[in-house]
Computed example of a mutant assay.
Amino acid sequence: MRDRLRKKAEKRKRDQIHRLLDLALDINGLEKRKQSVTGDLPTAFFVFSGHVGWVEVQIFSNGWISDKDPDTKIWSHTYSSGELAYAVRCLEALKAETQTGGAVRESR
Rank of each mutant, 00 (worst) to 15 (best):
T78P: 02
D15T: 02
E31Y: 03
S36H: 13
I65S: 14
V47R: 12
K13T: 08
I59D: 02
H77M: 04
Q16N: 13
T78R: 02
R4K: 11
A87C: 12
C90R: 14
G29L: 08
L25I: 12
Y79N: 11
T100Q: 09
E92Y: 03
I59A: 04
R14W: 04
F45V: 07
Q16H: 10
H51S: 09
R12Y: 05
R33Y: 08
E97T: 05
I65Y: 00
D69I: 01
G39D: 09
L5A: 12
D26W: 00
E106A: 15
Q58L: 07
A93Y: 04
G39R: 02
Y79C: 03
T43M: 05
M1N: 10
L25A: 12
Q99G: 00
W75Y: 03
W54C: 04
D26R: 13
A24D: 03
G63W: 01
D3W: 02
H18T: 11
D3S: 07
Q99I: 10
E92A: 00
H51N: 01
R2H: 06
W54Y: 13
R4I: 15
K11E: 14
N62D: 14
S80T: 01
R6T: 15
T38H: 10
M1L: 07
N28L: 02
R33V: 01
R105N: 13
R6F: 06
G29I: 05
R105C: 06
E97M: 09
H77Y: 10
L23E: 05
P42C: 04
T78D: 07
A96Q: 12
